[in-house]
Design a protein around this nucleic acid. Structure first.
Length: 383
DNA sequence: AAGTTCTTATTAC
DNA sequence: CTAACGGTAATAAGAACTT
């Protein structure tokens, strides 16, 4: 179980590539999938940019208004999620065939555990294990290209962390294999923000103390890391300390359990118009509830999100049922007498409760704060 | 003191 | 000139509150 070989597959600029496939007249042109730019006035962001659009500095998460400035003549397309979903399902069906241990991470990303290769051929093997992994990856790339007319990038390594970083390095349309004995030389020259889990904030902190490369990050002791990040970075698994060394024992696991469901929207213009606010809000609540029903989920906590004109964002939440605190468990047979006055509400799927409680929370924001509102959202925690 | 709830921060796709 | 900055979800941490 210790020796593993993990494959990470990542479709190249997935949404943009699908649009290019569906519209051959766009081939090679800068394609930007995302919010409506509205002649530079749009408020959304870029979802995916094709590689020719990236030459203009356009990338995922860039404000669409900025993207429009950078290349107004680019082809701006709305997100056609149903289409991408369908293509994703077809692709994942192909990927799955290559290993029984499969984990889909997002619409366009998945891991395969290829460790079965170790036991496949014991004595006489034509290739090393990693060589066999590479052959599988080539086949997989070929099958997806032939059947779906789409390119992807595959990374192979001894764990998920390395596989993921490897595919990132190799894209687009790439294939890169990093064997255990190559991990060190692969990792050390990379920038700290190439490490999954190190985002803009953490990277900035590290640069502040003169750490820019993973090699330098390795010089920090566990205690030093704790000083910088508090307990974070020490407790998260794999920790930053381990990641910097390419260590990651997290398994490839098929199913991810949904823990919350939510909706949020940014208004076209900041507003205080309660018509607009509550109409949208009720719609979102309906959608959340619908999703609860479809999955036969019950919820226990409702959180409402509100972002004001100045981007200040706050949340308010309400837990609708009182769980049974463990502290009470050891209290002997009297506990129900002692605490019985406090009704234990059950988790619920009730729409009216969701609606009224969520509205109460939103109303608090409106009462407390006179600023124009940019975004509202609602989320429920599943139990 | 310990468990739960509420809020914020950060990350990722 | 600066700002521009979506939607969905997970996770961690610490403050505030309850018991």
């Amino acid at each position: 179980m210790t020796k593993r070989i993990i494959l990470h597959i990542d479709m190249d600029c997935f949404f943009a590539q699908i649009e290019e496939r569906e519209n051959p007249q766009f081939k090679g042109k800068p394609i930007v999938v995302g919010a409506d730019p509205k002649e530079g006035k749009g408020r959304g962001v870029v979802s995916t940019a094709s590689y020719s659009a990236r030459k203009y500095g356009i990338h995922s998460a860039l404000p669409i208004s900025k993207a429009y400035q950078l290349c107004p003549k680019a082809i701006f397309l709305p997100v056609n999620m149903e289409l991408y979903q369908k293509v994703s399902e077809e692709i994942m069906a192909i990927v799955k065939k290559y290993s029984p241990t499969f984990e889909q991470v997002s619409l366009d990303e998945a891991y395969l555990d290829l460790s079965f290769l170790w036991q496949a051929i014991k004595g006489k093997r034509p290739l090393t294990i990693y060589g066999q992994g590479e052959e599988l990856a080539k086949k997989l790339k070929k099958e997806i290209l032939e059947k779906e007319k789409l390119t992807c990038t595959i990374g192979i390594g001894p764990n998920k962390l390395i596989a993921k970083m490897t595919s990132k390095k190799a894209k687009p349309n790439g294939l890169l294999v990093i064997k255990p004995d190559q991990v060190r030389e692969f990792l050390e020259p990379l920038d700290i923000d190439d490490l999954p889990g190190i985002g803009p904030k953490t990277a900035e902190k590290l640069r502040g103390i003169g750490i820019n490369k993973i090699e330098e990050l390795k010089n920090l002791s566990k205690t030093k890391l704790r000083d910088i990040f508090g307990v974070v970075g020490v407790r998260i698994s794999p920790t930053i300390y381990e990641r910097a060394r390419g260590i990651d024992e997290t398994p490839v696991t098929p199913e991810v359990i949904i823990k919350s469901i939510g909706r949020q929207i940014t208004f076209e213009k900041d507003t205080r118009d309660s018509e607009i606010i509550f109409e949208n809000f009720e719609q979102m609540i309906k959608e959340v509830h619908q999703e609860l029903i479809e999955n036969k989920f019950l919820f226990k906590t409702i959180t409402v999100i509100c972002r004001f004109q100045d981007f200040e964002t706050h949340t308010k939440s309400k837990t609708l049922y009182t769980s049974f605190p463990k502290a009470r468990v050891g209290l002997g047979p009297n506990f129900s007498q002692k605490f019985g006055h406090r009704a234990l509400k059950e988790p619920t799927g009730n729409f009216e409760i969701l609606k009224s409680e969520a509205k109460k929370l939103l109303l608090k924001f409106l009462v407390e704060n006179p600023k124009l509102i940019r975004l509202i959202g609602v989320r429920v925690k599943i139990c």
